[in-house]
Amino acid sequence: MKEGTLSRVQMVTVVALRVLIGWHFLYEGVSKLTADAWSAKGYLLQSRGPLAEVFRWMAADPERLATVDQLNMWGLTLIGLGLILGCFTRLASASGIVVILLFYLCNPPFVGYFYSIPAEGSYLIVNKNLVELAALAVILVTGSGRAAGLDRIIHGLLKKRDRPADS
């Protein structure tokens, strides 16, 4: 998609979407960071689907699990900050997509699968994870950080320095 072709109202909408998703990530991150002892262990062990073995492997070894937990908590937090502030927006949204894809694949709502973790809705293949993932794809391709976000300032500063490289 060629940027700069979005209308003002379209861009405002995308920025709002970005901030909302960022908020969600950030809270998921900080609430885990500040919990007494959060771990993805239970979630990983519950994994079903084609990649179940991979997720169980992540939880199998205490040290590996500790790393996965740290990556998860800090990843969510930093992605959240990036999205809200529009800072390294592309990196943040791309990483967000990867993270959500992992969540999705860990417990995918495929036909015939059911879970002992209670879900708050009814899903068939598409669940909220997948929708949030698609929304992040929109953020990724519209580069809204350049319109409203710290990327605009970062970009501006870089431009100043690398003027010859530009245009």
Partner: peptide, 11 residues
Amino acid sequence: DEKDQDGGPGS
């Protein structure tokens, strides 16, 4: 980012 867009509308 350098390869990114040239700012949003009106930028």
